[in-house]
Amino acid sequence: MIEGGCRCGAVRYTIALDALPPVYACHCHICQRVSGSAFSVQALVGEELLTVTGPIIVREIVTEDRTSSQRFCGECLARVYNTNSRRPSIAVVRAGTIDRSEELSCMAHIFTAYRQGWVEIPDTVPSWPEVPPLAEFVAALNR
């Protein structure tokens, strides 16, 4: 069982997995703005594997082709995970909220066309300048 939670500890979660999930970095401008950093790092997990306790606030962001439901801690407002109508049943967990996050391995980088110039991506890690082909992306995460 993998555990994690928000900054203040009011929200805690478990992911029904035996091993830490693979994570990826997204360098798009939206992730830069939302994270306040050069990129965001996240894990894709089956929503049915995620059990969350504590005060969650949901904020829906609607665009022309999808609805993203962002989940934040109701106390410290840390973003914990989101779901997206284009990827039903998948939770996008913010990697920094996973306990033992220092043990995670970044398996791929996406939207690298927007990366900060000082960010270097190792040649051994798959990356795509925009949205990756789904099959390639999933293969990279599971290698």
Results as ranks from 00 to 15, higher is better:
residue 121 I to P: 08
residue 120 E to S: 13
residue 92 V to A: 12
residue 66 R to H: 11
residue 93 V to I: 15
residue 68 S to Y: 04
residue 98 I to R: 01
residue 101 S to H: 12
residue 42 Q to F: 12
residue 36 G to D: 10
residue 70 Q to C: 04
residue 90 I to K: 08
residue 73 C to T: 03
residue 138 V to M: 15
residue 143 R to E: 11
residue 16 A to Y: 01
residue 98 I to V: 10
residue 50 L to I: 03
residue 77 L to T: 12
residue 51 T to P: 01
residue 78 A to D: 13
residue 74 G to K: 09
residue 55 P to T: 11
residue 44 L to K: 12
residue 7 R to F: 15
residue 66 R to G: 01
residue 10 A to D: 13
residue 102 E to P: 00
residue 53 T to H: 12
residue 116 Q to I: 07
residue 96 G to M: 05
residue 28 C to I: 03
residue 51 T to R: 14
residue 97 T to M: 11
residue 114 Y to F: 10
residue 28 C to V: 02
residue 104 L to C: 01
residue 129 P to D: 06
residue 103 E to N: 09
residue 43 A to S: 10
residue 63 T to S: 15
residue 13 Y to H: 06
residue 107 M to G: 02
residue 21 P to T: 04
residue 107 M to W: 05
residue 134 L to A: 15
residue 43 A to Y: 02
residue 143 R to K: 14
residue 93 V to M: 07
residue 141 L to W: 11
residue 15 I to R: 02
residue 95 A to Y: 03
residue 9 G to I: 07
residue 83 T to S: 11
residue 119 V to A: 06
residue 13 Y to V: 01
residue 68 S to G: 04
residue 59 R to K: 14
residue 24 Y to W: 03
residue 104 L to Q: 00
residue 127 S to H: 14
residue 49 L to T: 04
residue 40 S to C: 05
residue 93 V to C: 10
residue 5 G to R: 06
residue 78 A to C: 13
residue 34 V to M: 13
residue 22 P to W: 00
residue 100 R to E: 15
residue 60 E to T: 08
residue 106 C to H: 01
residue 31 C to M: 04
residue 97 T to K: 06
residue 134 L to G: 09
residue 31 C to P: 00
residue 82 N to H: 15
residue 23 V to P: 00
residue 97 T to N: 09
residue 107 M to T: 08
residue 100 R to A: 13
residue 137 F to H: 05
